[in-house]
Design a protein around this nucleic acid. Structure first.
Length: 492
RNA sequence: CGGGAUGUAGCGCAGCCCGGUAGCGCACUUCGUUCGGGACGAAGGGGUCGCAAGUUCGAAUCUUGUCAUCCCGACCA
């Protein structure tokens, strides 16, 4: 009908775009590569943000806000980091427009108003933050410094996709300073764990925790840890990263502290972030050909109640019962909507809320009024059951949890079925093409081999899993000795 | 950034080749009948045809430029 969705089988990319646009998560904008996040999509982000923000605060972090602009001289201070981002930086060069003398009503950049020093629009905030930390840290008593910021960043991407890769996106970036290397490394792993917990328990998406190979490492980091998730098309998606920065930024920005013995040393740093890209992961991991499927814990709307009536007959009774149920659900902490919009037929509403991924739908008609029942439909399994109004609130609360669990289990089974071991190159290529997903294989540890594999297959090393067991073997490509398997996949 | 495609009412499209002042379906408004899986009838409203130049008596239609989106590639923590 009016909101037909492309099926996953016919065109996975188009299916994804259809869900994002027709599910009202986002819209294209007049700016290349930038999207508008619509209220429904933003509500989803707000729910994710609120949970994460609570988790950050529980682990001792405070929020702050740093500027959007970074003077170029600061930006280039940490060389590796600067080089890594240089190609995708937006740069502010002027601070004024003026009327175009040749075209009435048009504006031109005022050539007189060139900035003495160009400003880089932050692709990430290490530079401006470490420049600031220099003034905040003198002694070990100022450490650890545990700060997070919710912000937008800009990376001038050549090819963009809604939520997955846009020129501007929303994220949080944690930036911490510590007195010892060990403490900073603990922080790095702690935040990785926070991310894994959030993604698994709230987004119902199983992740693999691991460490990146050198070529996939964050520019300026000593170690980059990540959580990797698997999408329904068998491609991997990096869902979050946490970096141990060593003393790289402290040295670049001269951030020293006096220890207990009054000896000066550079501080140890971490940074970590997740972005609106998580919404893309959520969509691609759980949804089906009917639309979005959202996990109850972060769904903007958990239950929708749809009345079914004939004329005005007993409509008041029906409304009263629905409103009463809605109010009791709200009291129980459930995000519920009673959709008594008279413009749409029930069938239309059913399809609409399925498209939007609302976990539970409750239909109540005159029959139900007589029988003291309602029709309950699950979005995840598309099961419909007739239920009694007795104890319905408790049943719904319990069912929402069940849906959350079911979604995670389903994704977990899919993910585990898509981790394959390959011991020969032909198996490696075949599994990658035919089975897709993660391929666990030996690698000789060199960037050259990694690059060669990428060129041949488009697969990259997603991570070296943290729970890896050492195992002697031969590199899948070169046959050179290897001490452990790593996970390869084609990725977003 | 290279190759291909698209842009006409909120959405989906026709009209363009062959220039003559814009149409269809859905949605929207009003009224009535309806309502357990995307209702039906009647009467209405809504578009400087992505934007800008140019050709022409006249441009949605032809030419050039530009912007955005999609697909493929290159690129990408």
């Amino acid at each position: 009908m009016s909101k037909e969705i492309t099926s996953r089988a016919s065109d996975y990319s188009q299916w994804y775009n259809d869900l994002v646009i027709k599910g009202s998560l986002a819209d294209y904008s007049a700016v290349r590569g930038c999207m508008v996040i619509k209220p429904y999509g933003y509500a989803l982000w707000e729910n994710m943000r609120d949970v994460l923000d609570r988790m950050f605060k529980e682990t001792g972090h405070q929020n702050a806000y740093f500027p959007l602009f970074v003077p170029k001289s600061l930006f280039e201070a940490e060389e590796k980091n600067a080089e890594g981002f240089a190609k995708e930086c937006a740069v502010v060069t002027h601070y004024r427009l003026k009327s175009d003398p040749d075209h009435k009503g048009k504006l031109i950049v005022d050539p007189e108003a060139r900035l003495e020093e160009e400003l880089v629009v932050r692709p990430t905030s290490e530079a401006i933050i470490w420049n600031t930390y220099k003034g905040w840290i003198q002694s070990y008593r100022d450490l650890p410094l545990l700060i997070n910021q919710w912000a937008n960043v800009v990376r001038w991407e050549m090819r963009t996709r809604l939520f997955l890769r846009t020129a501007e996106f929303l994220w949080q970036e944690g930036h911490t300073a510590h007195a010892t290397s060990q403490e900073a490394q603990q922080e790095t792993l702690q935040m990785l764990k926070v991310y894994a917990t959030f993604v698994e328990e709230y987004m119902a998406l199983p992740v693999i925790r691991g460490v990146k190979s050198e070529s996939e490492r964050f520019a300026g980091a000593v170690d980059t840890y990540c959580i990797e998730a698997l999408m329904q098309d068998g491609k991997a998606l990096q869902a979050g990263t946490s970096h141990f920065l060593g003393q790289n930024f402290a040295k670049a920005f001269d951030v020293k502290f006096s220890d207990r013995d009054n000896k000066l040393d550079y501080v140890w740093a971490t940074s970590w972030g997740v972005s609106t890209r998580l919404i893309g992961a959520l969509v691609m991991a759980h949804s089906d050909d009917e639309g979005l499927v959202l996990p109850p814990r972060i769904a903007p709307l958990q239950v929708v109640i749809i009345p079914i009536y004939k004329g005005a007959e007993k409509k008041d009774l029906l409304d009263a019962r629905a409103r009463d149920l809605a109010s009791r659900l709200k009291t129980a902490g459930v995000r519920v909507k009673f959709d008594d919009n008279d413009n749409a037929r029930p069938g239309w509403k059913f399809a609409e809320y399925e498209l939007k991924g609302v976990p539970l739908r409750l239909a109540m008609g005159l029959r139900d009024l007589e029988n003291n029942t309602a029709e309950l439909a699950r979005r995840d399994t598309r099961e419909k059951t007739n239920v009694s109004m007795e104890g319905l609130v408790e049943r719904i609360v319990q069912l929402l949890e069940e849906i959350q669990q079911n979604m995670f289990n389903k994704a977990l089974i899919f993910r585990d079925e898509h981790i394959s071991r390959a011991d020969t190159w032909s198996d490696f290529e075949r599994l990658l093409d035919e089975k897709t997903g993660f391929i666990s294989a030996h690698w000789d540890g060199t960037a050259q081999t990694e690059e060669a594999i990428k060129e041949k297959t488009k697969a990259t090393i997603r991570c070296i899993p943290l729970d890896n067991v050492p195992e002697q073997g031969a590199c899948i490509l070169t046959g050179k000795p290897s001490s452990q398997r790593v996970l390869f996949a084609r990725a977003y």
